[in-house]
């Protein structure tokens, strides 16, 4: 693609490790929410990370044979992408759109780490082709809230230690936020049942349920 641009998103300070690239200059559309620029844990009180400067064109990034155009609305911004029809929504978000907050844990709908919202409903993004989502409104964890401006559910997860390693956390939170609008009984058992599509191998389940229940009680 002649208009391909790349951007440095996450860069370590040594040579060769230049940063995150996207197939188009999406990050400027996404704004700060699209960029996770630092691994520093000091960010607890820091503002959302700023977009990194534009990098040069990726000469080696040739056109993808058989690719097709798709226009997705992600976190409120329109992304015009050229994707392999085989690309899942998950891989498209992670590998093409630079939105790596959504995780791959099994690639077969068996863990829930890839949970995102499509038109306000939670789905497994690993079991959907990106090309099926022309015009759909997609929300990822980056669009839910960022440090300094966390969604109440994100804040509750921090308060209740609703994670350990953090890898399944994006999916847990996307499920939990969706659950707030779903039919769900009042008890912990009701929440557990409806959160069971999100596996936490660290087993932070009691804390996750406590976080969800706190937000439900307050809202």
């Amino acid at each position: 693609m002649a208009d391909e641009k790349q951007k440095a998103g996450s860069a370590e300070d040594s040579g060769g490790a230049a940063g995150k690239v996207t197939r188009r200059s999406f990050l400027s559309h996404l704004g700060a929410a699209g960029v996770a620029a630092t691994a520093s844990p000091l960010l607890a009180a820091a503002p959302a990370a700023a977009a990194m400067p534009e990098a040069s064109e990726a000469a080696s990034d040739a056109k993808i044979v058989g690719s097709v155009p798709v226009s997705l609305r992600v976190n409120g911004k329109v992304l015009k992408l050229q994707v392999d029809p085989r690309a899942t929504l998950l891989d498209t978000l992670r590998e093409s759109a630079g939105l790596t907050g959504t995780k791959k844990g099994c690639d077969h709908g068996q863990c829930g780490a890839c949970t995102v919202h499509v038109n306000g409903r939670r789905v497994n993004s690993c079991l959907s082709f990106a090309v099926m989502h022309e015009g759909d409104e997609i929300t990822t964890i980056e669009g839910i809230g960022q440090p300094g401006n966390l969604h109440p559910m994100q804040a509750a997860f921090v308060e209740h230690d609703g994670y350990q390693c953090g890898y399944c956390t994006s999916g847990q939170i996307m499920s939990a936020v969706a659950l707030l609008k779903e039919p769900c009984g009042p008890t912990d058992a009701d929440v557990k049942e409806l959160m069971s599509g999100n596996i936490c191998r660290c087993g932070a389940y009691p804390n996750i349920v406590a976080a969800v229940q706190q937000v439900r009680l307050r809202s």
Binding site: G109, G112, T115, R121, R122, V123, N124, L127, S128, S175, A178, L179, E182, L194, M195, S196, G197, N198
Partner: peptide, 9 residues
């Protein structure tokens, strides 16, 4: 059956 996410799909 399945999970809430899969049932949405």
């Amino acid at each position: 059956g399945a999970s809430a996410q899969l049932r949405n799909m």
